[in-house]
Amino acid sequence: MPQNYVPIFLFMGVAFAIPAVTLVLFKLVRPENPHKTKLMPYECGITPLDDARGRYTVRFYIVAILFVVFDVETIFLLPWAVRFRWLGKFGLLEMGIFLGILIVGYIWIWKKGALEWV
């Protein structure tokens, strides 16, 4: 079975090789003249006021976790979809129940306003 995945491994190899080769190659070619000021974040010439790594709002967390949850839901659709004909009406009913429960949750978060960027 894994023989079918040789192209993917080749692809991975190329994907890792390109940045590695470019980094090494450019390290050899470019002039190197490091300075502390060059590493400062650029803010229109003004000295930065505080750390760039500020605290993020919790809304990002809500978006991320809702994404993960519905991602998991979508993953469950795939094994059902490839067996769709074979599972027939019973499979449709099963998936209907599964999605029904989740759609209740979806409507709830919609009404709750969690999908809006406050």
Binding site: I62, I65, E73, F98, L99, L102, I109
Partner: peptide
Amino acid sequence: TSVLVLIAIMGAVVLASP
């Protein structure tokens, strides 16, 4: 599993929403 996912959704929204 769907109930579990539902609990995850509700828990996250209740905990994180103002």
